[in-house]
Amino acid sequence: MPPYEKSMEITPFKQKKCLATRKDEVCTIRSKFPNKLPVIVERYLREKKLPLLDKTKFLVPHELTFGQFLSLLRSLEASQALYLLISGKNMSCLSASMGEVYSQFRDPDGFLYITYASQDMFG
């Protein structure tokens, strides 16, 4: 895997769109897919080892556990250990449903923001 480069930095989702636009987007998503949760997954800003995911927006079923969601993300980047932080600072029990995690940690705009990082983030 190539080392982290400045050119690989991207603007966080919240900074790309204003609050009103993000709220409208969530409203549209929830009306089209009432049984799915809008989740944004982004790489930790100081992450040096993990690559960017191909996409950042996910529609996740309420019943899916946080552990199953982690497995889904791991399958996208199977070669590295992956740690997930909710709203940039919280961790959740792997057996909690995404519906529970969403209701507890969703942002005021309606998205659930999850940051992924490697172990070095904690050290």
Score class of each variant (00 low, 15 high):
Leu53Met: 15
Glu63Tyr: 11
Leu85Arg: 02
Lys89Val: 11
Lys57Arg: 15
Leu59Gly: 06
Asp120Phe: 02
Met91Glu: 13
Ser87Gly: 10
Ala78Phe: 09
Ala96Cys: 12
Phe122Thr: 08
Ala96Pro: 00
Pro108Ile: 03
Gln68Ser: 13
Leu73Asn: 06
Lys89Ala: 12
Leu53Val: 08
Gln104Glu: 14
Gln104Met: 13
Tyr113Leu: 01
Leu94Lys: 09
Glu63Asp: 14
Glu77Trp: 01
Leu82Thr: 09
Gln104Trp: 03
Ala117Asp: 05
Tyr116Leu: 08
Gly110Lys: 00
Met91Phe: 05
Phe105Trp: 14
Ser79Pro: 02
Gln80Thr: 07
Thr65His: 06
Thr65Met: 11
Lys89Tyr: 05
Leu85Phe: 03
Gln80Pro: 02
Phe58Met: 08
Asp120Val: 04
Asp54Lys: 14
Ser103Gln: 13
Phe69Glu: 02
Phe122Lys: 04
Leu53Arg: 03
Tyr102Cys: 03
Phe122His: 05
Tyr83His: 15
Asp54Ile: 05
Asp120His: 10
Thr56Trp: 07
Ala78Met: 09
Val101Ser: 00
Gln119Cys: 08
Thr56Lys: 12
Phe58His: 09
Glu100Lys: 13
Thr65Tyr: 11
Leu52Lys: 12
Ser75Phe: 07
Ala117Gln: 09
Asp120Tyr: 01
Ser75Tyr: 03
Glu63Met: 10
